[in-house]
């Protein structure tokens, strides 16, 4: 499974990478430091589209919400599963990202164990959506 994380915090990227390494589902992870680098990559003509994009909300140059909006407006990227990965836990923020087209909202967990569990749950659920007749339009998950 191909997945992407865009996050400007180096520690958060490292933790995420370690969590991915430890779970049982085989995964190839690509990392980006900001929203612009992510979008430039996704818009490359031969880009291998990932199954899930994990997006931090607060990033320099181009923030997560902007990326989300661009992804949902783009014909080829539109159907990729987007998971917001953020420290904000304001109900309004969360609802707004869902309305703008996010599938998943993860509050950055405060322990490595919780992070691993969250990532594992997201990958498994996305796999079910991929292989079963579940309606992707209604795929919303808040962790």
């Amino acid at each position: 499974m191909n997945i992407i994380l865009a996050d400007d915090d180096a520690d958060d990227r490292t933790l995420f990478e370690e969590a991915i390494d430890e779970i049982e589902i085989k995964t190839k992870l690509s990392l980006f430091n900001d929203g612009k680098a992510l979008m430039d990559y996704l818009l490359l003509p031969n880009c291998m589209l990932p199954e899930i994009i994990f997006l931090d909300l607060n990033m320099p140059i181009k923030d997560g919400l902007q990326c989300l909006t661009e992804i949902r407006e783009n014909e080829t990227l539109r159907n990729v599963c987007v998971a917001i990965y953020s420290t904000s836990s304001s109900e309004e923020d969360i609802e707004e990202t869902f309305v703008k087209g996010a599938n998943i909202y993860i509050n950055k967990p405060n322990s490595f164990k919780a992070l691993k569990k969250a990532v594992e749950r997201v990958l498994k659920l996305n796999w079910q959506y991929h292989t079963s007749t579940l309606n992707r339009d209604n795929f919303l998950l808040r962790l």
């Binding site: 309305v99 919303l140 808040r142």
Partner: peptide
């Protein structure tokens, strides 16, 4: 299963439709 209550879910989908956001 979803982390959301049925009414929050309903509200989100309704707003998406109003703004014509594709999931």
């Amino acid at each position: 299963t979803t982390g959301l209550t049925p009414s929050t879910f309903q509200r989100i989908i309704k707003k998406r439709k109003e703004r014509e956001v594709m999931p």
